[in-house]
């Protein structure tokens, strides 16, 4: 198999693009793909402060590496949601990665704020840890970025993530979400920070290959709470289609973005300020503060128990 660009021995075949590439041309392909997404959707404006959410996983570390190579001034942010036996190792890997690159890493610990991890909170509230995890991460990323003066939060969502989200939204006819899904979520309130997804055109396999070629040591372990997650099944379905019809995933997502205006969206809710934290919400209290308040009500001795352990 020969590289389509230079004719040297190819090291990877990309069936979706009907090309095989050598290592150097593959690495250029990845950087060009991200740069194209950034330009097409105008993800960044010159001089802005960019915060990259790093989980220690392959997507966020590859993203950080790519943005640094493209010359964007990026800083990392790790959110420790206190998942036993998982969060600590992930944080170590993220820390080592950013230290090697001499880039600042900001840290947030849920245990420091609530004295409990996300699984304990979910268990006490009889909720799924995954639903709380997603909501909490979004809130914490936004609050931290806004407080520290970052104008953009960047996440490592890739083509498989975006395809799975799109499929899920279509299955459930979530018209409001369908109208909003994009590599660029603009700031719609002075206390909301813009969120962008520069890896949206790259598949998980391409990102995995990028990490291997660059020697990026990422956290390989899967979150213990993600077992049986619907999004994983949705990805499997899309990858089965991709296998039988190469290019299906990128067509599914890109054609959706081109035709997104068929989903008019819902009337925007009136935004208020959360009575506890002051961040925007459609209710009196935002979901994050409501969850923490409910947890504290149900766990009146939590603080004392944790203090004794210390």
């Amino acid at each position: 198999m020969k590289c389509k660009k230079c004719g040297e021995k190819a090291v990877i075949r990309l069936r979706a693009h009907n090309i095989s590439l050598c290592k150097d041309d593959f690495l250029s392909f990845v950087l060009n793909s991200v740069q194209r997404t950034i330009k097409k959707y105008k993800l960044f404006v010159p001089g802005e402060k960019i915060l990259v959410a790093v989980s220690g996983g392959k997507d966020s570390l590859a993203l950080f590496d790519i943005l640094q190579r493209l010359g964007y001034p990026v800083e990392g942010f790790y959110i420790d949601l206190g998942i036993d036996g998982f969060s600590q190792r992930a944080q170590e890997i993220a820390g080592e990665f950013l230290a090697e690159r001499k880039a600042p890493l900001h840290l947030y610990s849920l245990r420091e704020e609530v004295r409990a991890g996300v699984a304990q909170i979910a268990s006490r509230l009889k909720r799924s840890p995954c639903s709380l995890c997603g909501m909490m991460r979004r809130y914490i990323m936004n609050r931290f970025a806004w407080e520290k003066g970052f104008s953009t939060v960047v996440t490592g969502h890739n083509l498989d993530d975006e395809g799975a989200t799109l499929l899920g939204n279509l299955i459930n006819w979530q018209v409001g979400y369908l109208a909003r899904q994009s590599p660029l979520l603009p700031a719609t309130h002075p206390r909301l920070v813009k969120k962008v997804k520069p890896l949206a055109r790259l598949s998980e396999r391409e990102i995995l290959a990028y990490c291997l070629f660059r020697g990026i040591a990422y956290h390989e372990e899967r979150c213990p709470h993600s077992k049986g997650a619907t999004s994983i099944k949705q990805k499997e379905v899309l990858n089965l289609l991709e296998y039988h019809s190469p290019g299906s995933k990128i067509r599914f997502y890109q054609e959706f973005l081109k035709n997104q205006e068929v989903f008019p969206g819902l009337e925007p809710h009136e935004m208020r300020e959360c009575t506890v934290c002051g961040f925007p919400t459609t209710r009196d209290m935002c979901q994050f503060c409501a969850i923490l308040e409910r947890f504290r009500e149900l766990t009146p001795l939590q603080g004392q128990i944790e203090e004794r352990k210390d």
């Binding site: 198999m1 190819a10 090291v11 990877i12 075949r13 069936r15 095989s20 598949s203 998980e204 396999r205 995995l208 290959a209 291997l212 070629f213 990805k235 499997e236 990858n239 089965l240 991709e242 296998y243």
Partner: peptide, 18 residues
């Protein structure tokens, strides 16, 4: 294993499917 969801390596080097 769906080849869209995996990479095969030998001695740390990625192998193409052929």
């Amino acid at each position: 294993i769906n080849p869209e969801t995996a990479l095969a390596l030998r001695g740390g080097e990625i192998l193409t499917e052929d």
